[in-house]
Amino acid sequence: MPGFNIPLLGDGLKMPWGDIRLIIDFFLGGLGVGAFIIAFVARLIDKERYQGVTKAGAYIAPVAVIIGLLLLMSDAGVPIRFLTTFFRTHAASATSWGTFLQGFLVVFLLIYAWVASRPEGAVSESAELAIGWIALILAALTAPYHGYVMATMTGREFWSNAMVPTLFMTISISTGIAIVTIFSAGEAPEVQVSLGKSLAIILGIQLVVLITQMSLAPTLSAGVKAAASVLINNVWLFWIGILLIGMIAPLIIDITAVRGEAAAATGTLFLVSLLVLVGGFLLRYGIIIAGQSTQLTP
C-alpha cells in the first residue's frame, strides 16, 4: 500500500488505516477539540483569569483540526473527491456524519478564533458566548468521534465497544489541556496549576479506562484478546511509551507539582504536558494498529 505505513505492530499485515497521516489526523483532531473544550470551559469559569488560556485554545484548535483534516484528505485514494462527501451523504455511515460534524466544527472554531483575536468589546459577549457554545457542543461530539467510528467497524473486535470512544475522548481532552498548558507558559502560576489539576483528573480517568479495556480483553472474544496481546506484548510501545512515559510518570509528576508551591510548578507542568502529548499519540497509534492486527483470521 502506498503511503507512510509505520508497522511497529502487526508487521506483515496490510492495514487499511495504517498510514501515519491518518493517525496524525486522529491525534491532531482530538488535540484541537480538547484544546477548545478546556479553553472555553475555563472562559466560562472565569473570563478574566483565564483570558490567556482561552486565547491559546481558541487559536490552537482550528489550526490543529485543519492540519489533521488536510492530512486525512491527502491519505485518501482520490483526495480531490473528498468534498463530495458533503453531497453524497449516507445516513448509515458514521464517516458521513463526521464530514458534517467536522465541517461545522472548523467553521465555528475559525469564527471563535477570529472573535478571540478582536479587542475586548469588539464583539458582543452574547454573540461570543453563542458561537463558543455551538463550537463547544461540536467539539464535545468530535472528541470521541474517531473512537466511535472505529467502534462501528464490524469485525474489529478490539474496537467494538464503548471503551474505545471513551478512551479517545479522554485522550482528546488530556492532549488538549497539555497543548494549552504549553502555550500558556507565560500565564500566572495559579492559572497553570489549575490546568495541571485538570490534567491530573483527566489523566487519571484515562488510565482507568485504558486499564479496564486491557484487563477485560482476556475475558472477551479471541479476537479482542489477540489484539490486546499485540499491544501488551510490545514492551517499548505499551509499557514504556504509553503507560510509563505517557501516563503514569506525568500523572505522578503532575500531582506532585500542583500540590507544591505554584511558582515552582510551571516548568514541571511544561514537561508533564510534553509527556502527555507523546503518550496520547502513542496510545492512539497503539489502539488503531492493534485493532487491525488480527482481522484476517477467519
Binding site: P16, A76, V78, T85, T95, T152, G155, R156, L296
Partner: peptide, 18 residues
C-alpha cells in the same frame, strides 16, 4: 464516486478489499 477513504476496508471483517 469512491473517495478511497478505506472505511469499507476497515469495516470488512474478511479482508476482502484493497
Amino acid at each position: 464516486t469512491c473517495i478511497g477513504c478505506r472505511a469499507c476496508m476497515v469495516a470488512c471483517p474478511y479482508g476482502a478489499r484493497y
